[in-house]
């Protein structure tokens, strides 16, 4: 808790992500309704809410894995439009960690990590490999560098996936339920890596139901339902004193 408060003071107030009156539909289905969200540099946000409420879709709009149809999304001072060059620029600055890891199974761990730096950032291979080893050590998995993803456990794969994103030196990290596909005994090793990342001041948007994680690192918790952000508050306030009917119901369900 103390760590958090300490870094909170350093929060810069220039927003790195700005979402303004954003709507999205899948066909006729109105999946995101009037989303307004501003994320400052260094801020850490945990997004929770029932399944199907649009959490994944929201963070996937931020790196345009999904397209929004109304409103504006501005990331790192670039507005997301159909301009594919801008989209690629933003994607290079925004790391994403998926529920199912999505490592590249035909490449070694090391090659998974160096791919982005070499091809997107045009980093020389030797330098990219040094950086990859640095981040692999950081997620405590350097000895697996020559293996293929299929030879690793789920928790190890997810840590590799985090390291793969970090190799791009992203300004923002998006996490879509990073621990929900893991066996219970592996959840902690991944959360520990994420907590460490938080302590270093990374800007993070995390879709997660890990309440302990939210309590210890988040500045803000967003509660989503029916494609809307129904409530946002500090974790302390949100967990002890939820305002909205739906949040109360949701919390009572996941806490038991």
């Amino acid at each position: 808790m103390n760590d958090k408060i300490e870094s909170q003071e350093k929060l810069s107030d220039s927003p790195i992500i700005q979402i303004i009156e954003m709507h999205k539909w899948f066909g006729d289905f109105h999946v995101l309704r009037d989303i307004n969200l501003s994320v400052n540099k260094g801020e850490r946000i945990v997004i929770c809410g029932p399944s199907g409420s649009g959490k994944s879709t929201l963070i996937r709009c931020i790196n345009r894995l999904e397209e929004h149809q109304r409103g504006r999304i501005i990331v790192d001072n670039i507005e997301l439009t159909n301009d594919i060059k801008n989209v690629e620029k933003i994607r290079a600055e925004v790391g994403m960690v998926f529920q199912h890891f999505n490592l590249f199974p035909h490449l070694t761990i090391l090659d998974n990590l160096t791919l982005g730096p070499i091809w997107v950032r045009k980093t020389p291979r030797a330098k990219a490999e040094d950086m990859a080893m640095y981040y692999l050590e950081k997620v405590h998995i350097a000895e697996q560098a020559k293996k293929f993803p299929g030879q690793l456990s789920g928790g190890q794969q997810q840590r590799v996936a985090i390291a793969r994103s970090l190799c791009m030196k992203p300004k923002v990290m998006l996490f879509d339920e990073p621990t929900s596909a893991l066996d219970p005994e592996m959840v902690k090793e991944v959360l520990d890596v994420m907590i460490q990342l938080a302590q270093e001041g990374m800007t993070m948007l995390v879709v997660s139901h890990e309440m302990g994680f939210a309590r210890s690192v988040a500045h803000r918790v967003l509660f989503m339902d029916f494609g809307q952000i129904l409530e946002q508050n500090t974790p302390k306030e949100f967990f002890s004193n939820p305002q909205h009917e739906r949040s109360k119901l949701f919390l009572s369900q996941i806490l038991h």
């Binding site: 790196n63 894995l65 594919i84 690629e88 620029k89 994607r91 290079a92 925004v94 790391g95 994403m96 998926f98 199912h100 999505n102 490592l103 590249f104 791919l115 982005g116 091809w119 997107v120 793969r164 994103s165 791009m168």
Partner: peptide, 12 residues
């Protein structure tokens, strides 16, 4: 997921 992971890295 393979396409998405590649796109999320910023690959063309």
């Amino acid at each position: 997921g393979q396409y998405e992971a590649a796109e999320a890295l910023g690959l063309s």
